[in-house]
Amino acid sequence: MNIFRLLGDLSHLLAIMILLQKIFYSRSCAGISAKSQVLFAIVYTARYLDLVTVYVSLYNISMKVVFLLSSYATLYLIYLKFRATYDRNHDTFRIEFLLLPAIVLALLINHQFSALEVLWTFSIYLESVAILPQLFMVSKTGEAESITSHYLFALGSYRGLYILNWFYRYWTEGHYDLIAIVAGVVQTVLYCDFFYLYVTKVLKGKKLQLPA
């Protein structure tokens, strides 16, 4: 554990908490892509199957459980509790275009051809693109609530901080994981456009609005 890794995890946790409290207190999931949330639930489910096979640390277990439970809680809020507020007409990204390539790539490029390892790899590939339906939704409506922007910023920062963690680990331990690094870079790059808008608009108190 190093400072980048810890900040990355906290940033991830913060993103999830921002999203849950936004939906819960506004009693609305307007502007939130349910499809991205479905992909995240698939990501955590496929990745954290090792909860029952290996013990890493109490921290590791607790965070995994929190990420899993919160992803399903988010789906519950969107699809059941506040389903009337779900903006499905703007959430039209075809997720099979992300799921299928992630499955094929995981079968072809992995560290070991075993069920758990392929599922882990699949989750890494899928996570790197899972935000696309949400970004697509923002671009389609041309705007995002500030709270949604904060959520996206925290979520995007997490993999960026993880890249620093990978640098640090390579530097100090000589340990690296090419699959996680490359996917993490792809994931972070996808947020770059958004990061720019966040810094130039949202942080200056303006609403995130895309030029027409």
Partner: peptide
């Protein structure tokens, strides 16, 4: 098959 160490990252 190669040994894959437990993954620490989340």
């Amino acid at each position: 098959t190669a040994f894959i160490p437990p993954k620490d990252e989340l």
